[in-house]
Design a protein around this nucleic acid. Structure first.
Lengths: 152, 152
DNA sequence: CCTGAAAGTTGCTAGCC
DNA sequence: GGCTAGCAACTTTCAGG
């Protein structure tokens, strides 16, 4: 874990809210000026704290109207199965998030697709590739909040 | 839903993978040149398809080592309760995602915190603010995949 | 709708406080 | 460490095909 001061945190806060602004603007917002801010950003990039810059796209306007959270239980816990499962998740663009869980449920996925039929296609492809014991899909009716910003 | 051609989709694909490149690079990647690409991006911005540019931060390196998926059932379904609940979620930076669901479980949250104690603090604050019937927290052991890219 | 070039900003570096 | 200044690179605009 990196050691950051208050200005670093302000910079990160600004960048994770809107990275599309100029260095000058960000420098003014955090109460510093161009060069020091640029040096801090460079260091945090090198440290891997700051990753890629990406745009947020409007899922609805692009026709992705269905979003599922998928709870998965498996009976297989050996290395080979895990690798096959992990591989299947990585290569599927519909899977926006995948977490291995502690407890009763083994995995949770967030799957974004155009419609319910597209989800079924995804689901059939997944279970034909890897064996899973039990699957529960939770359908999102409304995306209340969605951000990648961390609570700095 | 907007009408997009193949080049538009390629541009969106490039931007949601890495928006930190120059127009020239992106133009070359999608097989076009600067000005037309710039015009397409401008139009998609105006249409709201392209939103803010943000940086992806490394949660682990910043000390956010705990991530919970929270399943919530409620007995209250009236307007006032919903507004209070929605308000509580919006103002809490720990809540990275919040969805209203169809079926048995009413809401799912993704909550990012520094550690289990910080989750408990969040949890206590939430249930003291709004009444919820049943809460199940799923603890993430490993973030296998995490992207905001849509499967264009 | 694309090309090419010009003008205005910005990112990035270096040398000084 | 931060500031000033300057150059290179980029974004953005606008003619013209």
């Amino acid at each position: 874990m990196a050691r950051l001061d208050d200005i670093d945190r302000k910079i990160l806060g600004a960048l994770q809210t809107d990275a599309g602004r100029s260095l000058d603007e960000i420098a003014k917002e955090v109460g510093s000026s161009k060069t020091p801010v640029w040096n801090r950003i460079r260091k945090m990039r090198e440290a891997g704290i700051i990753g890629n810059q990406v745009v947020q796209l409007d899922a609805d306007k692009l026709g992705f109207e269905a979003c599922f959270f998928v709870l998965i239980r498996t009976s297989e816990h050996d290395k080979a199965w895990q690798e096959a499962f992990l591989n299947a998740l990585m290569k599927r663009a519909e899977v926006q998030e995948a977490h291995r869980l502690a407890g009763d449920i083994d995995y949770i996925l967030k799957v974004r697709v155009k419609n319910a039929r597209a989800y079924d296609t995804f689901y059939q492809a997944l279970i034909s590739e890897v064996k899973v014991h039990n699957v529960t899909a939770l359908l999102s009716m409304e995306e209340i909040k969605s951000t990648i910003a961390l609570p700095l």
